[in-house]
Amino acid sequence: MLRNDVLSALQQYDAADARRALRALANEYPDDVAQVYFGSMVNALEGRSTAPFCRHEAALQACQALSHEVQPAVARAFPGQSGATWLAPLWVELAGRAAALPFRAEHADAHAAPLFLLAARWAEASDAISRIASWRRIPAPLCWMTEARYRLDGLDAAWPFLVELAWLSPSRFDQLLSRLDDACVNRLRRAFDMSFEGAGDLGDLAWFPAWVLTDKTGLAPLFKRAEPSRQNAPERAAKVMLGLLSLERQGRHHELLETRRELQALNGALYAAYMKTR
């Protein structure tokens, strides 16, 4: 019953009542392990603020405290999705306090956008990202926007951004796929990992968009919406694949042979995957 009193106050975000209930629990059961994680949550409520952050370091420190100290405690008190729901207002508060901080690549996690994502506030995250200059050419905000568009509008809307992210930052692309856990993309990723003969590291994922087009030709219209990135070999290969699909539809055999040779020169493994389906 005493534990339930603490939980009830925590669910209401009532710091004063939660502290009183926690003291009552400690007085009756001083060795109760629940005091540890309840205490972290009560401290978090007592420390709530709307004062804007003036420095990136202060925002990072607050984010790390919520992530490393409070979040594990919340997982003990409110298992499953209810824990994320309880934390959401606290992430939103941090996002509001960080709203005036400009994006800095070395302090990316201090920006408001990833904090809005942690609170599942997808539209607010998208708005915050759109105010970052050249966000589509920077790995962190491009990754954030990709997730925001996926959560808001689904996979079709996110595909162009996923393609650009694979070209720009294979490591962030890999991390994002784990977070999204999309069944369709997961199947493609497993097939890619099993069949693509690359270097055997995360850098191979830059070739993923071009590889997908060797089999899933219906995705070509979505992939065409991807904007130019670094013009690296994987990006050029994807553009060549789009060209090949167009030439195939038009029956332009001479140009098709020349373009196939271009693809082979860019990546032999990709060319082999393409020819296997022809």
Rank of each mutant, 00 (worst) to 15 (best):
D174F: 07
P221E: 06
L66T: 02
A105T: 02
K276E: 12
C63D: 05
Q61R: 13
Y37S: 08
S40N: 14
A21W: 04
Q250I: 02
N27S: 11
L177C: 14
G80S: 05
A18S: 12
L118A: 10
V33Q: 07
R151E: 15
G251S: 04
A84S: 10
L60F: 02
L219H: 06
Q35G: 10
L117D: 02
H111P: 06
F78G: 03
D17V: 09
E106C: 00
G243K: 06
P114T: 03
Q71W: 06
A15V: 00
A273L: 03
P114E: 04
W144H: 08
F173V: 01
L176M: 03
A133P: 02
R179L: 09
R236L: 12
A18M: 10
A73H: 02
A51W: 01
R260Q: 14
A210M: 08
L115K: 09
A100N: 13
G200Q: 06
Y37C: 11
A112G: 01
T259I: 05
L66D: 07
V74R: 04
R20P: 00
L7K: 03
A73Y: 03
R131D: 12
V92E: 13
D181Q: 11
L10G: 08
L66E: 05
L188E: 08
R3N: 15
A108Q: 10
A113W: 02
V33N: 05
P234A: 07
M41V: 12
E57I: 04
C63L: 09
L90I: 06
A18D: 09
R149L: 14
P52Y: 03
L165V: 02
D5G: 14
L242P: 14
E248D: 15
V70R: 07
R149S: 11
A84L: 14
H254C: 01
A119V: 07
D153S: 15
E46S: 05
E69P: 00
L142A: 09
R137E: 05
E258G: 15
Y29N: 15
A77K: 03
R187A: 13
G39T: 00
S169T: 04
R189Q: 10
P170V: 08
D215R: 15
R190M: 13
A133S: 13
N186A: 15
R19P: 02
C184P: 00
A199W: 04
A9Q: 07
R23W: 13
I132W: 00
V70F: 06
L94G: 02
R190V: 14
L244K: 06
E28Y: 09
A84W: 08
R249G: 11
M1L: 04
C184Y: 08
D32V: 08
A125K: 05
W135T: 10
A157V: 04
S169C: 15
W91N: 03
Q175L: 14
